[in-house]
Amino acid sequence: MSFNNLDQLYRQVIMDHYKTPRNKGSLENDNINIEMNNPTCGDRIQLTLQVEEGIVKDAKFDGEGCSISMASASMMTQAVKGKDVETALRLSKTFSDMMLGKEYDDSIDLGDIEALQGVSQFPARIKCATLAWKAMEKGVQNEEKS
């Protein structure tokens, strides 16, 4: 059986991130620690961030979930590391728009993340892809408030 449509979902780069996740584990010098889960399916992510003077100095994630959720977490940590919080949040907004099939800001270089675009064609899986990003948003927003 051929699965051309599935190849839109499970792109090579996604499977690469799933198999060899970047930034897996948890930071020791974190100042932001967020745990988030997807109650409908059991996916779980623990995100640790080190944010100093408005810059995401380091990011790591741990958790359990499907290929999409784990690959997305891996890509997210890679993307936000070294960026300022504002840029990280803008990336997150862009990613969210992309998932929802909306027009998105293409002036930002999404790099590997672009590979997740196919997920938008699988409505049941969008939440898998956005979990790590939601965790990051919540983390930095809590930090900004405090």
């Binding site: 699965f3 599935l6 979902l9 499970y10 399916c41 996916d43 979930g65 499907c66 290929s67 999409i68 699988f122 049941a124 899986r125 898998c128």
Partner: peptide, 8 residues
């Protein structure tokens, strides 16, 4: 992962 199984 079971989600991936279910999608396929």
């Amino acid at each position: 992962h079971p989600h991936d199984v279910a999608t396929v």
